[in-house]
Every structure is written in structure tokens, then in C-alpha cells.
Design a protein around this nucleic acid. Structure first.
Length: 494
RNA sequence: GGCUCCAUGGUCAAGUGGUUAAGACACCGCCCUUUCACGGCGGUAACAGGGGUUCGAAUCCCCUUGGAGUCACCA
């Protein structure tokens, strides 16, 4: 059996959507699991939607996620060019379309937009409530198929704009086989004569895709489920050309929490957005790998190489998967916890510095925060109290489980303050011994001594680290100043 | 609306004719603990409904219902 060749064929129209990313991931996994070739092809046939810089995003995403392609615009593997606009320059698409015209499988169409518009038919629940979207659909009536040879020649000579359409028979059925969904059959009557070559001379995605997949010897065509309904038309193209069809792998849709296809507005729709929201590349990849597939040995946290090892596309499931942000957050937290201290420090530092504008022990802060966050963006609100004591209510000194209240706290802080002041060596160990000896002296619960102190120096209900850590990071002056503020607050309240 | 696809807990997801129907996230409780987390232990929660086939259906077939996708000179 020949080696697997898969291709990722994005169009450079903006950000990298997670649906696209998952497609890329599965294409990569399918190829790499069997030591095959993963190809990048840029489908830039839509000039209107082309966005500058979008190609860079594609490269950066592939690199950032570790989905390294073996062939692509920057890596010639003998099947180039790998950018469709460049391929078009050689005229191949038009050439292939003309072959189809000769066979009668395609034809020139000179219909104007106006005529096409007159064919439109409103559809949907027009009279139901406004909720339903009303669409207009067209099924082309093959008007130009019946033009005489002379008329066609004349129109061409007169430079009347034209497109080339696929000629689909009115009768019969077309079937194709998909690895995930099985055999699907549709009536040809349902199939529209889709446009192969646009009036600007560019091929449509549909056409370029088929031609290029064939020419590049793609063995497995992997794409989103939304292409399922146009696949029969591709099948007809393959048949008309007399080409062997690739193995189809249509992936289940990724939806938002409303079970609708992920759209631009979902907020978590693109890889870039996710990075911006403090997620790690590895976690994102791991998470989306599990949208539609699960490991046979039931593990969930998997590196890319483990995915390559265990991935079997035959086990992909059919039903759509909701993109669950909550689980992604959990998984990201797991990745954060697994990181070694140095690596974590490096990536956490910018977030810490953004929240703290003082020269504190960032390293220590990072290690305190590491096991308590799910995304890097959680860091800010967790450490900002180091920068400035927040406003807080004296009620915070009252804690049932710790058995503290304002009175206890006032006593503890008042007695502790001079002892802290007297400290020559101010560090975690010495702070601890001051507090602990006070606790044993007074025969009180740990919480009764520690809660007031931690609350006083942080002004927060919960903090990364406890009283000793916070006081030592804050430094003596700042810590004591905060304790004095607390004593002041408390004496007014009691 | 036509066509196509899908259907196990709130979510992801095992399961492929015989199971007490896994596991994970989330949620709840308990333990640990100087708070919150982390960690540990436990719990709530599912085969959409109805017909068949079969000794036996989550698993096979049909219908119903629900959901989604698609119907462009977009990809």
C-alpha cells in the first residue's frame, strides 16, 4: 500500500478557527501515525476574502502547535506550487475545465447576475415567527447548456463574461463512501451545476480542490462535515475525469454550547483568541484532539507524540461535539501544573509584571500561583494584592471554620505587631516562628493566629500562599504597614 | 422548505447482541489544610419515544420526535 498523503488546505481569510485547527491536527495525525506525508496547500482562490497576513497566521499556528508540514509553499516536495494562485498562473485549472467541456461534463455559462437572481426561490419558514432565517436558493436551470455551438463561439469572441459549470445529469444517483459516515447516496436531481471556473478566471474552491488533490496524489481527504453535502459533486468530477477517488474522512462538527457550528463570534473560535486568553498550545491541541476521538486506553492528557502513536481515524465518531470551555480550562490547568518551574516562570512573568509594578520576588510569586490557576490570565487578579492592598471589609476577619472574629483578630494583630517589628532577620522562617510561638503561647487554634495575619496583609479572602509567604514577599515595611491598617480598621469596628 | 447527517448523564466519551452501562470535566459531600487551590475518597446524573427482529437489545431494522449541516462566481 502506498504511503499516506494528507493535506491541510486553508484559505488565507483571517484567523485560524479551532475547527480548521482540528482538521489540520487530524490530517497530521492520520499521516504521521503511518509515517506518511503531511502537506500544506494554500487555497487563495477567493481574492475578495483574501486577508493580508493570514498566511503568516497559518504558518505560525502550524509551528506553534507542532503540526509541521512535510511539503508546502516553503518546502517543495515535487508537487508544487503549493499556492493555488500560483498554480493558476500556469493555466491548469482552465485547461482541466476545458477537458470536461469537451467531454460534455461541463459547459460555458453566460448568464448574468440578474438572470440568476430571477431563478431565486425563497425558502424557510416565511410565515412563522421572525426567528427563522429566510434564505434564497437557486438551482441553475441549465439554460446555457442548450446554447448552440455558434452562439458559444460568438459570445466567447465578443468577450462576454462567462463561467464554466459542471454538467450534472438530471437523472440517476451519485454515491460515495466516507470512512466515518459510510456510503451516502443522493439523487442527481438534487445537485446543482456548480461553477468550476469563475468569471475572473479563478477556479472555485470546489474545483481547484479536486484537481489539486488528484495532482498532488492526496490519499486521504480530511475535512469538516459541512462538506458532506457537496461531496457528491466532487465524486462526479472524479468520475468525469476518470480519476480514482481519495479516501474521505469527514469530521464531526465542533459546535458552541448552543450546539451550533462554531462561528467567529463565539469568542473561543480561533487559536489566537485562545492563546490570548491564556491557554497553552499543547493544551489546546490535546483538547481538540479529544473532540471527536478518544484514546483506546482511556487517557486524556496526551502529548502530540502520544497522539500520533494512538490515533486511529477509523475510531472518529460521527456526532457533533460541543467545545466545552470549562474542560479546556481544566486541561490547561493540568498542563500548567506539569510544567517545570523555570518554564512556568518564563511564561508567567509578563502576566505578573502587568499586575505588580514593584520589585518583588517574582519567582516566588510564580511558584505560588502555579498550581492555582487554569489559564495565564488568572494570574493578574490573583496577585494584584501584592501591588496594592485592596479595599476590604472588616467582616473578612470573621471566619467560622477558623474560629476568628474581629475581636480575636484585633488582639492577635496588636500583640503580633511589635514582635514582627522586633525581627532582625525577616524571612519566612522567622515570621513563622513568631506566629507559631504566639499560637502555642496563647493556646489558640492555628487559624486564629494565621487567618488575621493573612487577611491583614492581603485584604483578600483567598490568596496564593499563606501568611508567611505573603509577608516575606511583601517585605517588612509593607507588611507591617498593612497590619497597622488592619488594626486601625478593627479598632474602629470593635 | 428540499436534501444529507446525527441521537448514551449538563458537556466530552467508552460500549459494537448477554456489563451492576466505564472514565473525564462540571456539580455536591467528606478528608487533608493557615484561606483558596492542589491532592485523596465518595455521591447525584444517561441509552429521546414507539414498534419490530431475537431466548436476550444502548448495540440490528422501521417509524416518530429532536438536533445539526447544506442548498453562493465562500471555503
Amino acid at each position: 500500500m502506498s504511503k499516506i498523503r494528507t493535506r491541510f488546505a486553508p484559505s488565507p481569510t483571517g484567523k485560524m478557527h479551532v475547527g480548521n485547527l482540528r482538521t489540520a491536527l487530524y490530517e497530521y495525525l492520520i499521516a504521521k501515525h503511518e509515517d506518511g506525508t503531511f502537506i500544506l496547500r494554500i487555497e487563495d482562490t477567493d481574492q475578495e476574502r483574501y486577508v493580508d497576513g493570514a498566511i503568516d497566521i497559518i504558518y505560525r499556528t502550524l509551528e506553534g502547535t507542532g503540526l509541521i508540514h512535510d511539503e508546502g509553499p516553503d518546502k517543495d516536495g515535487g508537487y508544487g506550487p503549493y499556492v493555488q494562485s500560483e498554480r493558476m498562473a500556469s493555466g491548469i485549472y482552465l485547461e482541466y475545465a476545458k477537458k470536461l467541456v469537451e467531454k460534455g461534463s461541463a459547459y460555458y455559462c453566460f448568464c448574468t447576475k440578474d438572470r440568476l437572481a430571477s431563478l431565486k426561490k425563497a425558502v424557510g419558514n416565511v410565515d412563522d415567527d421572525e426567528e427563522d432565517e429566510v434564505k434564497e436558493i437557486i438551482k441553475y436551470d441549465k439554460h446555457c447548456l442548450y446554447l448552440s455551438k455558434e452562439d458559444i463561439e460568438k459570445n466567447l469572441a465578443d468577450k462576454i463574461p462567462y463561467v464554466i459549470r459542471q454538467n450534472i445529469p438530471l437523472e440517476g444517483t451519485t454515491s460515495f463512501h466516507d470512512t466515518i459516515f459510510g456510503t451516502i447516496t443522493v439523487d442527481n436531481e438534487e445537485l446543482d451545476d456548480m461553477i468550476l471556473i469563475k468569471s475572473d478566471g479563478f477556479p472555485t474552491y470546489n474545483f481547484a480542490n479536486v484537481v489539486d488533490d488528484h495532482l498532488m496524489k492526496i490519499t486521504h481527504v480530511v475535512r469538516g462535515n459541512e462538506y458532506l453535502s457537496s461531496t457528491p459533486k466532487y465524486t462526479r468530477l472524479y468520475q468525469d475525469f476518470g480519476w480514482e477517488e481519495p479516501i474521505y474522512v469527514h469530521l464531526p462538527l465542533i459546535t458552541n454550547e448552543d450546539h451550533k457550528k462554531l462561528s467567529k463570534r463565539s469568542g473561543h473560535s480561533s487559536y489566537e483568541d485562545l492563546l490570548e486568553q491564556g491557554f497553552l498550545s499543547e493544551a489546546i491541541v490535546n483538547f481538540i484532539a479529544l473532540l471527536g476521538w478518544s484514546s483506546p486506553n482511556n487517557t486524556e492528557i496526551m502529548s502530540l507524540s502520544e497522539l500520533i502513536r494512538d490515533f486511529d481515524y477509523r475510531g472518529i465518531n460521527k456526532s457533533p461535539a460541543v467545545f466545552d470551555m470549562v474542560k479546556l480550562r481544566w486541561m490547561n490547568g493540568e498542563y500548567l501544573k506539569m510544567m517545570d518551574e523555570d518554564d512556568f516562570y518564563k511564561i508567567a512573568l509578563p502576566y505578573i509584571k502587568e499586575a505588580i509594578h514593584k520589585d518583588l520576588d517574582y519567582r516566588r510569586i510564580a511558584s505560588l500561583v502555579k498550581t492555582r490557576i487554569e489559564t495565564l490570565c488568572d494570574i493578574g487578579s490573583m496577585v494584584d494584592f501584592f501591588n496594592e492592598l485592596p479595599e476590604y471589609d472588616v467582616e473578612m476577619f470573621t471566619h467560622k471554620k477558623m474560629k476568628t472574629n474581629s475581636e480575636n483578630s484585633l488582639n492577635a494583630l496588636t500583640e503580633l505587631l511589635p514582635r514582627f517589628e522586633a525581627l532582625e532577620e525577616y524571612n519566612e522562617a522567622s515570621i513563622e516562628s513568631v506566629i507559631m510561638s504566639y499560637i502555642s503561647e496563647k493556646q489558640i487554634k492555628n487559624g486564629q493566629g494565621l487567618w488575621p495575619v493573612r487577611t491583614a496583609v492581603s485584604g483578600k479572602q483567598s490568596t496564593p500562599g499563606g501568611a508567611y509567604e505573603i509577608m516575606s514577599i511583601l517585605g517588612k515595611d509593607e507588611s507591617l504597614a498593612r497590619i497597622r491598617i488592619a488594626i486601625d480598621k478593627l479598632s474602629k469596628a470593635v
